[in-house]
């Protein structure tokens, strides 16, 4: 057993784990910051909703669909000039975050839109009847009512981001996925492959059960 794992550089694995966590945390933060308003806007512009703006809805929808239909690996490469502009580097954790955010935001925005649609129209009507402004309807009624759905959306997005970070090695971002490809695949170090896979699996499990627990905590139905 010891012999099997003796070639593993645990320091390297620790660093890679940290990189993965940093990429995940950073990109998740910006994805939520950008995707939540985008999702709310998508919802509000939708047919028979508060703003009901067909033109804007069609435009946002198109943008979201185009970004979502690009395979992430292509997006990583296409984004390099923009990433350089934003972060000054296209390498490392900082270089990976812009493409990760660009890949996950449209996905997350769609999930938010769906979660908001689950809110009973009657609740919006009742809040309007109380004399609420649009801003109050969004912050006092819509978002609190959709909270469990939005937390579930964040969970799914986080897990998608974990798999995206594994590809970010292509642009030299590091992380567990990068380690698995360089050592596990290209250098036939099955032990490294095994350890990285187990770590990623644990990370995904952890995210999912944390998300589930939060959803449960905030569900009142």
């Amino acid at each position: 057993m010891d012999a099997f794992f003796s070639h593993i550089d645990w320091y390297e694995i620790g660093l890679a784990s940290l990189d993965t966590l940093l990429m995940l945390g950073g990109s998740l933060l910006f994805t939520v910051l950008l995707g939540l308003p985008l999702g709310v806007l998508l919802f509000l512009c939708g047919p028979r909703q508060l703003f009901d703006n067909r033109g804007l809805y069609a435009l946002l929808s198109l943008l979201v669909n185009v970004l979502r239909s690009l395979p992430f690996i292509i997006l990583l490469i296409v984004m390099i000039p923009l990433t350089l502009l934003l972060t000054g580097t296209s390498l490392g954790v900082a270089g990976a975050i812009p493409p990760l955010v660009a890949g996950a935001t449209p996905f997350f925005a769609r999930l938010v839109e769906t979660a908001l649609r689950e809110v009973d129209r009657g609740i919006i009507e009742a809040t309007q009847a109380m004399g609420a402004s649009t801003r109050q309807i969004i912050f006092r009624a819509l978002l609190p009512e959709a909270r469990p759905g939005i937390i579930a959306a964040i969970t799914v997005t986080a897990i998608t981001l974990v798999s995206y970070t594994a590809m970010a090695g292509v642009v030299g971002a590091g992380g567990l996925g990068d380690l698995a490809i360089r050592f596990g695949y290209q250098r036939f170090q099955t032990d490294v492959m095994l350890v990285t896979v187990v770590l990623m699996l644990l990370l995904v499990q952890l995210l999912q059960s944390l998300g589930d627990r939060l959803v449960q905590h905030y569900s009142r139905k």
Partner: peptide, 22 residues
Amino acid sequence: GLRRFRQRLGMIFQHFNLLSSK
């Protein structure tokens, strides 16, 4: 004006329309 006016009018609904999160 409409918001102020609505604040002075009560309304109840068939399906109650209470906020489940509150």
